[in-house]
Design a protein around this nucleic acid. Structure first.
Length: 477
RNA sequence: GGCGACGUAGCCAAGUGGCUAAGGCAGCGGUCUGCAAAAUCGCUAUCACCAGUUCGAUUCUGGUCGUCGCCUCCA
């Protein structure tokens, strides 16, 4: 089956083919670890996970690399000259490196809870400064970089393809220049971006600092992704993923400095995940449909959901209800809907596991639909529809030989269906005896005893379902 | 101000130039059932509005209204 993926560069779905047969070099823009990731951030990583799992499903080996940007960045408060991480460090009275490591740990913990497979390579920006410096030196050699008293910049006019990805002209960017942004007067073009900041002026007291040919300072944003992706994956990547906000700044910059340094194509397929937007979360919340943001007051972490009693995988399930290139509107109602949907899927696999059966020919049609859906630019809503149609058909026909199919689908879905089914149907002798005893009582129409046994079992976390062909049960916790 | 995206049932959302406009959640009614739970069947959409192209538009084009995003080191 051919896999088609939407390439932001061409704004079209394209049939995917990798540079090396059977192997996809994939780079995912990772977190900036100066704060907790919110569920909107996490949606992007679920998207990348689905992409990687789909590639694997179709037989590719996927060495995925993800950066951890632990170099501090500026605050949006131009006056302070503080760094976001430094600010956070001060607030919590902790060492800045500790802070970065803390948020990194929490991030990967969230990733694990969401059943996102960890990347083959995680790389920290602070551990690759020499590679970044080497990259900047190459940009000097090739005439793309220049130095001012404050920093080293990439001259965007030396790279004509700069606007290819963003499709936003430099003139447009020019008019966008905001008057309260502190500009370096020596900058040649407003769109030029920093490759290296010197520890002077507003950055005089910057904590994270390294030596460089341009004096002590710290790397600009963007550079770490170029340096690290090329270090681990080579000069040309198959796929580069990130959030849709990166289409206009981060990725054009990354692309420019990478291609500027190597003269080679940097990325074959650029893929971007759309934002989660937040609907009305409470009655006194007037605004609607805002993006989730650290400064928007609608900051929901995965832990927030867990505290409210949701399974992290229910959030994963929720993310499948919308296509990755479409905004997904988050409300508590939609979260509840996802939780219910995921629960009934888990109920089904527990039921199917108990009843069992051979896979019948009709299942193939649903397998085809599922595969067709994921191969069509990761259409998870349709893939999920295929799953739901499969289980409805199984219930209707009372033919439950569908677990192999569901477990295959779960290689992409990552909803832990096998684990869930096994857990739900694991019992000890005591429980099995009680269930048998109750069946005897029911056969004798001793309803009082049957109900009492059901109650006891319920207290032990066992839920019973009496059907025409016998009693089914499952563990509910 | 510049650029872009989107507006499909109570909610979250797929999709298509014409055949019954997926799926989930919620709701209502029926079947099944000792009860419970589940399952199953049925019901709930003039696809934002206006005009154009077309034999035919929810799908294409233009406009209007609304929402959102980016241009700010936010996925």
């Amino acid at each position: 089956m051919s896999l088609s993926l939407y390439n932001t560069l061409t704004r079209k779905k394209e049939e995917f083919s990798s540079i090396e047969p059977g192997r996809v070099r994939m780079y995912t823009c990772g977190p900036t670890v100066y704060n907790y990731a919110h569920i909107g951030n996490l949606r992007s990583y679920i998207f990348a996970d689905i992409l990687r799992r789909t590639l694997q499903y179709f037989g590719y080996e996927v060495p995925q690399v993800m950066n951890v940007t632990d170099v501090g960045h500026l605050t949006d408060d131009a006056d302070s000259g503080d760094d976001k991480m430094e600010l956070q460090a001060k607030k919590e009275g902790k060492d800045i490196w500790e802070i970065a490591r803390h948020f990194e740990d929490v991030f990967f913990d969230d990733i694990e809870k969401l059943n996102i497979e960890p990347p083959a390579v995680k790389c920290r920006a602070t551990e690759h400064v020499s590679e970044m410096i080497a990259l900047v030196e190459k940009l000097f050699e090739r005439g793309h970089a220049y130095e001012t008293a404050q920093a080293v910049y990439f001259d965007v006019t030396t790279f004509p393809a700069y606007t290819e990805l963003s499709r936003q002209s430099l003139e447009d960017k020019l008019t966008a220049a905001r008057d309260d942004v502190q500009e370096d007067p020596e900058k040649r073009n407003p769109a030029d971006f920093a490759l290296w900041f010197k520890a002077v002026g507003r950055f005089e007291h910057h904590i994270m600092r390294w030596d460089s040919p341009w004096g002590v300072g710290f790397p600009g944003w963007h550079v770490e992704c170029s340096a690290m992706s090329m270090k681990y994956l080579g000069q040309t990547l198959d796929i580069h993923t990130g959030g849709e906000d990166h289409v206009w700044v981060h990725h054009p910059n990354e692309s420019a400095q990478s291609e500027g340094a190597t003269g080679q194509k940097f990325v074959q397929y650029w893929m971007h995940g759309a934002f989660l937007v937040v609907g009305r979360l409470s009655a006194d919340d007037d605004d609607e449909d805002r993006r989730m943001g650290k400064s928007e007051g609608n900051f929901l972490r995965l832990q927030t959901l867990i505290d409210k009693g949701y399974d992290p995988l229910a959030y994963r399930y929720l993310c499948f209800s919308a296509h990755y290139r479409a905004k997904l509107k988050f409300t508590w109602e939609s979260m509840d809907a996802a939780a219910s949907g995921y629960d009934s899927l888990k109920d089904f696999v527990a039921r199917a596991k108990q009843i069992g059966g051979q896979e019948q020919p009709w299942v193939q049609e649903h397998r085809n639909k599922f595969e067709h859906a994921i191969a069509d630019d990761l259409n998870m809503p349709q893939a999920l529809a295929a799953v739901n149609e499969l289980i409805r058909e199984a219930d209707r026909r009372k033919e439950y030989g569908v677990l192999d199919a569901l477990y295959d689908f779960d290689k992409v879905l990552g909803l832990n269906l096998r684990k869930s089914a096994e857990k739900a149907t694991s019992a000890d002798a005591e429980i099995e005896n009680m269930i048998k005893e109750r069946e005897t009582a029911r056969a004798n129409k001793d309803w009082a005893k049957a109900d009492e046994l059901r109650k006891s079992l319920s207290e032990m976390g066992i839920l019973l379902e009496d059907t025409a062909s016998g009693t089914l049960w499952r563990r509910t916790e």
